[in-house]
Computed example of a mutant assay.
Amino acid sequence: MKRVMTSMAALAIGAGAAHAGGVERSTQSVGILFEQGNYAEMSFGAFNPDVSGTFPTGAESGDMAPGYGTLSLGYKQQLNDQWDLAVIFDQPVGAKVNYPAAANTGYPVGGSNATIKSSAVTALVRYKMPSNISVYGGLRSESVSGKASLYQGGANYYNLDTSEETDFGYVIGAAWEKPEIAARVALTYNSKIEHEFDAKETAGGADFNTNFTTTVPESVNLEFQTGIMKDTLLMGSVRWVHWTQFDISPPVYVGNPLLSGGEPLVDYADNTITYNLGVGRRFNDQWSGAIMFGYEKHQGGTVGNLGPTDGFKSVSLAASYQATSNIKITGGVRYVDIGNAKTEIGPYTTDFSGNDGWGAGLRVGINF
């Protein structure tokens, strides 16, 4: 029964790519530490948003948020009765922005595009103490790079291309379990990671070699689950991210008011709290299913043109199939109602509303 319940808790993670505050692409879950015995997994996710806005003149931006994919890998080794080791690969932050050309839409910033790419490897150890309490922690190595090209009225007026930088942070946490009812509460802190980039900025037909620092913010995860009746599990998470620590402020861009108005290329005025709550159910020895609801508060105000979303509501459906005694396949789909947002272009305000997206995910896990 414990193994079945642990399997069902994993459905929440396998229900598609994340869509949350800032440029987040991974929830940095430590759930793999609680798998039984030795365990390995591979997960693929895809998310296809539809995000567009309307300028006061009536010009439509067109869909400026292309779809993207995610990959994660995990390995957990039980060293002995008290110690576990896990290694996780994921893509914690990312962005993909591509406004259709102004010649096709008439939208003032048409043609503007940006990408952020990342990858991270996290090594964790867990120590089991008396009274079903455990502590865990480790190090994260994170690599990040980015590009941006800004257009106004069909003309390219600024470009940014950064180096790929690898830096380190840490993870600490504690958990309590009650195996008889498949209960577990895990609280995890992920430190901020500062990256100092070498960059090439292009403005006014000239190239500038510069550098600047960006912080991928700290976060706190609360993950929980408990059996509420036979073969039925209540599960969820609360995730806080300190997004006001994050900004992209290349010196040439920020230092020229004609380019930026003195504002960062990207920054966030508010931190975010993301909630997920769902129920999993074991149907028989092979099949389990789950439904999960997600929510992130709409903050209001204006947001940047390279990220015109604000909050969300979501629902996920997932199913898990125990293919053999040690191979488990989990798949899911997710619908996201993307929160309405407003952006500023000069003295004007663009309205982004009625946007949504679909995600899907597949995870294969092997116990050995």
Rank of each mutant, 00 (worst) to 15 (best):
K2R: 14
M5H: 07
S7P: 04
M8Y: 03
L11Y: 11
A17L: 05
A18P: 01
A18M: 14
G21C: 09
G22C: 10
R25K: 15
S29R: 12
G31M: 11
G37I: 03
S43L: 10
G45Q: 00
V51K: 00
G53E: 07
P56K: 04
D63W: 10
N80G: 06
V93F: 15
Y99V: 02
P100M: 01
A102R: 05
G111F: 11
S119F: 15
V135T: 06
S163G: 01
K178L: 13
I181S: 07
I181M: 12
A182D: 10
A182V: 03
V185I: 15
T188P: 01
K192F: 05
I193L: 05
E194G: 11
H195K: 04
E196D: 13
E201C: 08
A203W: 07
A203C: 09
G205F: 01
G205W: 00
G205C: 05
D207E: 14
F208R: 08
N211E: 03
V216T: 07
T226N: 06
T232F: 08
F246V: 08
S249I: 02
P250I: 02
P250S: 02
V254R: 09
G262Y: 12
E263P: 01
E263I: 11
V266H: 02
T272F: 06
N276P: 03
N276W: 02
F283P: 06
G289Y: 05
Y295L: 07
E296C: 04
E296R: 07
G301W: 06
V303Y: 00
G307L: 11
S320R: 12
S320E: 10
Y321H: 15
N326G: 08
G332D: 10
R334Y: 13
V336A: 06
E344Y: 12
T350P: 10
T350L: 04
D351W: 05
N355G: 11
G365R: 09
F368D: 08
